[in-house]
Protein backbone atom coordinates (compact mmCIF):
# COMPACT_ATOMS: atom_id res chain seq x y z
CA UNK A 1 0.00 0.00 0.00
CA UNK A 2 1.20 3.47 -0.73
CA UNK A 3 1.46 6.05 2.01
CA UNK A 4 0.25 8.70 -0.35
CA UNK A 5 -3.21 7.69 0.72
CA UNK A 6 -2.52 8.40 4.32
CA UNK A 7 -0.92 11.74 3.89
CA UNK A 8 -2.32 13.74 0.99
CA UNK A 9 -0.95 17.25 1.08
CA UNK A 10 -2.89 19.71 -0.95
CA UNK A 11 -2.10 22.95 -2.70
CA UNK A 12 -4.97 25.33 -3.19
CA UNK A 13 -4.99 27.93 -5.93
CA UNK A 14 -7.80 30.28 -6.84
CA UNK A 15 -7.56 30.78 -10.58
CA UNK A 16 -9.86 33.78 -10.93
CA UNK A 17 -12.65 32.38 -8.81
CA UNK A 18 -15.30 34.43 -7.07
CA UNK A 19 -13.84 33.12 -3.77
CA UNK A 20 -17.03 31.28 -2.96
CA UNK A 21 -15.47 27.88 -3.55
CA UNK A 22 -12.29 28.94 -1.79
CA UNK A 23 -14.16 29.74 1.36
CA UNK A 24 -15.85 26.37 1.24
CA UNK A 25 -12.49 24.76 0.71
CA UNK A 26 -11.03 26.48 3.74
CA UNK A 27 -14.07 25.46 5.70
CA UNK A 28 -12.83 21.89 5.32
CA UNK A 29 -9.93 22.78 7.60
CA UNK A 30 -12.19 24.06 10.35
CA UNK A 31 -13.14 21.99 13.39
CA UNK A 32 -16.43 20.93 11.82
CA UNK A 33 -14.87 19.04 8.92
CA UNK A 34 -11.25 18.86 10.17
CA UNK A 35 -9.61 17.23 7.19
CA UNK A 36 -6.37 16.93 9.12
CA UNK A 37 -7.84 13.81 10.72
CA UNK A 38 -7.39 12.23 7.29
CA UNK A 39 -3.84 13.50 7.17
CA UNK A 40 -4.76 16.24 4.72
CA UNK A 41 -2.62 19.35 5.11
CA UNK A 42 -2.91 22.57 3.17
CA UNK A 43 0.73 23.21 2.30
CA UNK A 44 0.50 26.37 0.25
CA UNK A 45 3.61 25.24 -1.57
CA UNK A 46 3.65 23.22 -4.81
CA UNK A 47 6.93 21.53 -3.91
CA UNK A 48 5.33 19.86 -0.91
CA UNK A 49 1.97 19.12 -2.45
CA UNK A 50 0.43 15.95 -3.89
CA UNK A 51 -2.98 17.22 -4.86
CA UNK A 52 -3.61 20.44 -6.69
CA UNK A 53 -7.01 21.95 -5.87
CA UNK A 54 -7.97 24.63 -8.34
CA UNK A 55 -11.05 26.82 -8.29
CA UNK A 56 -12.18 29.44 -10.77
CA UNK A 57 -12.54 29.79 -14.47
CA UNK A 58 -8.89 30.56 -15.40
CA UNK A 59 -7.93 33.55 -17.47
CA UNK A 60 -4.71 34.35 -19.28
CA UNK A 61 -2.98 35.72 -16.16
CA UNK A 62 -3.87 32.86 -13.87
CA UNK A 63 -3.14 30.29 -16.57
CA UNK A 64 0.59 30.99 -16.33
CA UNK A 65 0.54 30.66 -12.58
CA UNK A 66 -1.44 27.44 -12.68
CA UNK A 67 1.00 25.97 -15.16
CA UNK A 68 3.99 27.08 -13.12
CA UNK A 69 2.62 25.64 -9.93
CA UNK A 70 1.75 22.38 -11.63
CA UNK A 71 5.26 22.12 -13.04
CA UNK A 72 6.78 22.66 -9.62
CA UNK A 73 4.85 19.82 -8.04
CA UNK A 74 6.85 16.62 -7.79
CA UNK A 75 5.31 13.46 -9.28
CA UNK A 76 3.05 11.64 -8.57
CA UNK A 77 0.40 14.34 -8.48
CA UNK A 78 -3.27 14.84 -9.29
CA UNK A 79 -5.43 17.83 -10.11
CA UNK A 80 -8.88 18.38 -8.66
CA UNK A 81 -11.08 21.05 -10.21
CA UNK A 82 -13.52 22.52 -7.70
CA UNK A 83 -16.72 24.33 -8.49
CA UNK A 84 -18.73 25.02 -11.60
CA UNK A 85 -16.24 27.64 -12.75
CA UNK A 86 -13.35 25.24 -12.63
CA UNK A 87 -15.35 22.59 -14.38
CA UNK A 88 -16.64 24.59 -17.29
CA UNK A 89 -16.44 28.30 -16.62
CA UNK A 90 -19.69 28.32 -14.66
CA UNK A 91 -21.58 31.55 -14.77
CA UNK A 92 -18.55 33.23 -16.36
CA UNK A 93 -18.52 30.77 -19.22
CA UNK A 94 -19.51 33.34 -21.80
CA UNK A 95 -17.17 36.06 -20.57
CA UNK A 96 -14.65 37.07 -23.22
CA UNK A 97 -11.62 36.79 -20.92
CA UNK A 98 -11.86 33.32 -19.41
CA UNK A 99 -10.75 29.96 -20.67
CA UNK A 100 -13.69 28.30 -18.94
CA UNK A 101 -12.56 25.19 -17.13
CA UNK A 102 -9.23 24.13 -15.66
CA UNK A 103 -9.07 21.26 -18.10
CA UNK A 104 -8.35 23.79 -20.82
CA UNK A 105 -4.89 24.25 -19.30
CA UNK A 106 -4.17 21.27 -17.06
CA UNK A 107 -5.05 17.58 -17.14
CA UNK A 108 -7.82 17.40 -14.54
CA UNK A 109 -8.41 14.12 -12.71
CA UNK A 110 -11.42 14.81 -10.51
CA UNK A 111 -14.25 17.23 -11.06
CA UNK A 112 -16.12 18.50 -8.00
CA UNK A 113 -19.32 20.23 -9.06
CA UNK A 114 -21.27 22.87 -7.20
CA UNK A 115 -21.55 26.61 -7.06
CA UNK A 116 -20.15 26.85 -4.53
CA UNK A 117 -18.96 23.28 -4.07
CA UNK A 118 -19.91 21.99 -0.63
CA UNK A 119 -17.14 20.98 1.80
CA UNK A 120 -18.45 17.41 1.86
CA UNK A 121 -18.18 17.30 -1.92
CA UNK A 122 -14.68 18.70 -1.81
CA UNK A 123 -13.59 16.13 0.74
CA UNK A 124 -15.17 13.43 -1.38
CA UNK A 125 -13.29 14.75 -4.40
CA UNK A 126 -10.01 14.61 -2.55
CA UNK A 127 -10.72 11.06 -1.43
CA UNK A 128 -11.41 10.04 -5.02
CA UNK A 129 -8.23 11.74 -6.07
CA UNK A 130 -6.36 9.55 -3.61
CA UNK A 131 -7.27 6.47 -5.62
CA UNK A 132 -5.86 8.02 -8.77
CA UNK A 133 -2.80 9.19 -6.86
CA UNK A 134 -2.13 5.67 -5.74
CA UNK A 135 -2.42 4.39 -9.31
CA UNK A 136 0.06 7.00 -10.42
CA UNK A 137 2.44 6.12 -7.62
CA UNK A 138 2.46 2.51 -8.76
CA UNK A 139 2.98 3.57 -12.33
CA UNK A 140 5.80 5.84 -11.23
CA UNK A 141 7.48 3.06 -9.31
CA UNK A 142 7.33 0.82 -12.34
CA UNK A 143 8.86 3.55 -14.48
CA UNK A 144 11.68 4.05 -12.02
CA UNK A 145 12.39 0.37 -11.91
CA UNK A 146 12.54 0.27 -15.67
CA UNK A 147 14.90 3.20 -15.84
CA UNK A 148 17.17 1.47 -13.39
CA UNK A 149 17.08 -1.83 -15.25
Amino acid sequence: MSFLKKSPWVLHYAATSCNGCDIELLACLTPLYDVERLGIVNTGNPKHADIFLVTGSVNEESRKVVENLYAQMPDPKVVVAIGACALSGGIFRDAYNVYGGIDQVLPVDVYVPGCAARPEAIIDGVVQALGILEERAKERKRQRRMVRA
Binding site: V65, N68, Q72
Partner: peptide, 10 residues
Amino acid sequence: EVSGYLSGAN
Protein backbone atom coordinates in the same frame (compact mmCIF):
# COMPACT_ATOMS: atom_id res chain seq x y z
CA GLU B 1 15.91 20.26 -11.38
CA VAL B 2 13.22 22.87 -11.12
CA SER B 3 13.31 26.61 -10.53
CA GLY B 4 12.85 28.16 -7.10
CA TYR B 5 9.39 28.93 -5.77
CA LEU B 6 8.12 32.39 -6.67
CA SER B 7 4.42 31.98 -5.91
CA GLY B 8 3.97 30.55 -9.38
CA ALA B 9 4.79 33.87 -10.99
CA ASN B 10 8.16 32.73 -12.37
